[in-house]
Design a binder for these strands. Sequence first.
DNA 1: GCATATTCGTGACTTACATCACCGCCTGAT
DNA 2: ATCAGGCGGTGATGTAAGTCACGAATATGC
Lengths: 185, 185
Amino acid sequence: MHQKLRVHLEKIVKLEDDEFEFIFSHFIEKQYKKHQFLIQEGDPVKYHYFIMSGLLKLVYMDENAREHIVSFAMEDWWESDFMAYYTQSPSTMSLICLEDTEVLCLTLENYRKLCDSSPKMQRFFLEKANFGFLGAQRRIISLLTSSAKDRYEQLLKLYPVLMQRVPKSQLAAYLGVSRETLSRF
Amino acid sequence: MHQKLRVHLEKIVKLEDDEFEFIFSHFIEKQYKKHQFLIQEGDPVKYHYFIMSGLLKLVYMDENAREHIVSFAMEDWWESDFMAYYTQSPSTMSLICLEDTEVLCLTLENYRKLCDSSPKMQRFFLEKANFGFLGAQRRIISLLTSSAKDRYEQLLKLYPVLMQRVPKSQLAAYLGVSRETLSRF
DNA sequence: GCATATTCGTGACTTACATCACCGCCTGAT
DNA sequence: ATCAGGCGGTGATGTAAGTCACGAATATGC
């Protein structure tokens, strides 16, 4: 079961058995059922999550109680309300299960400990942060340059698997169009 | 002159004189005039830039030759086509002066050297990457939830100074609306 | 196995924004 | 002093997408 995390880390940094055991000891394991909340808007955010199995959505509610999906997260992804986590402020988003999900949880304290005690992990998190930024920038460009229909088609090409696991109403909330418009594409 | 970078770094990590001299030796200094290109779309990207003075725009051109502004960058900011820089692939964006600009340039090789030889710098870059990601995520939420008018008003509140230095046509290209619509707000 | 959500599609109407065309006002180069 | 180019405003019109309303098909809990 540990293997998932190890394989994931080793895509970026090679580890000895004892190094990995040390790293792994900083995480705790949790399970959630579909519809459960890992993060509830307004509450403090205890953990950064590594997802071993399942599927989550990170959701932002606007003043009109309309739900916007900031990102989906599935196996092998990291997810949290990172702003709230990193600055230890109340969350502005919710993290919700779309399927039953197993995660490894990392407190900010342990995140810091890992960075300080393991250059490899700091390196790993730097790499992750950089690619996270690049992904977000790609999405901004997509939102600026493409019509809703084009964005939908880009998404289908980029994550065909995901599209089959997620109801279209949820895709619409991710793309920033209404459910009705999406169903007319 | 070096002081700008030092003050900037010390907001996150404290440095001794000799540490800073070592770090500073990895940069080279350049000056550009208004309208000049620091990065030309399609070319390789040599540097990550720390901006000491002036103002830049990072621009993406779509298939219809319409210009979209991915970000503005002014004093004390870092900017580049980070994707192209980090993966050493041809740039998909251009970086262009809106004002005369002085920068410090960091090659990827020196970026890696700094990360490897100075835990403080790796720490600094991790912090920067995290906050860069958060900023991008905020912008995605803004694009998903707000009308063009609201986004314009958010922008005025968030960067009032910047708004006075940038022509409205450029603001429109940043917000993702037409120049005409913006002028009707 | 039935009742109740959830999901998806579609028609009719409204609205925000794009587009095109044209205007006057600066500013800076010659 | 003049003239070109950048900048910003505005009217008329087109269009993509939102909104509201309804119905059918599928999934889910008791």
